[in-house]
Amino acid sequence: MPRYSGIERKQARWGLIFVAPAMLFFAVFSYYPILNAFATSFFNKRALSKAPPRFIGLDNYLRLFSLKTAGNELSFYNSLRSTAIFTVGTFVPLLVLSLLAAALIASLDGKRAKRALQVAYYTPAVLSSVVAATIWMLIFDPRGLANQWLNGLLGLTGVDHLWLVDRSMEQLSTMIIYFWKYIGYFVILFITGLSSIPPTIYEAARIDGAGKLQVFGRITLPLLKPTVVMVSIMSMLQCLKTFSTQYMLYTNGAPRGPINVITFNIYVTGIQEQYLGRASAMSVVLFVVMLFFTWFQFRLSKADDVEY
């Protein structure tokens, strides 16, 4: 290897100078905190206590996963359960329906109509989560639109479906709010994915006499697999981090148990109750779960990269 000349050394220095500010930021605001979370999770630490934190080994984790608490509505077990229910209940419909909508939009003829639909579907994503939750809380009001629509659909009159009161309905409500906010976002991801499939493939299929459904099942879906994998993991990771919707519903009187997702539990335990050690242990669990899914995505998308 040739020795660095003066110019090259100067270049190397400038490269480092340009990267340094961002690197410094990540060291202080990403790496330090995650290491700190690991460390704190082994201590009994209270935010306002003057006593030094006490090392308690794995006690925080044992407490989180202690079977004795499993029946408790506000236990970590229950948080894992509500997070899983919310995640699966949100990302599966999001994935399926956004893919379907994208395929249908792609089949439209008018360029203008395509564009207008995308923009309209996307608009809720522009609003903040808090605003979305506020709108829907009024819709879910006993006298609100949700009851009117559902009763109209089912041919009932004056039935209250307890959207924000009943335990399962409350979970369904958070899913609907989230679905509403993000459907357009995922439609656009899929439209981008669809548009990267070369049209010549479709023409060839049509000449060979393939029907529309056949084309979708045999050509579009397999070629779209990388996008499907990416979007599903992305939406899953996003759902695992949900907070604002649950926070809004709870602070307005909905029961906490069914929507006590992990992030909400971390917030209550760490910030309101000031159990920093225990909240850190929950954070580490959340981190590990998300790390697993990220790794999973990596594996999947590596395995089936499509070449056109």
């Binding site: 961002a22 690197m23 990540f26 605001f29 990403s30 790496y31 330090y32 905190p33 995650i34 700190n36 979370a37 704190t40 935010a47 990771l237 695992l240 981090k241 907070f243 992990i262 992030t263 971390i266 917030y267 760490g270 910030i271 920093l276 909240a279 850190s280 954070s283 580490v284 959340l286 981190f287 998300m290 790390l291 990220t294």
Partner: peptide, 18 residues
């Protein structure tokens, strides 16, 4: 730098708060 994408804000908010 890329690896920090795997660190969700929600998992480090307690240390950041401290």
């Amino acid at each position: 730098i890329m690896a920090t994408m795997m660190i969700p804000f929600e998992a480090i908010m307690i240390p950041l708060y401290m």
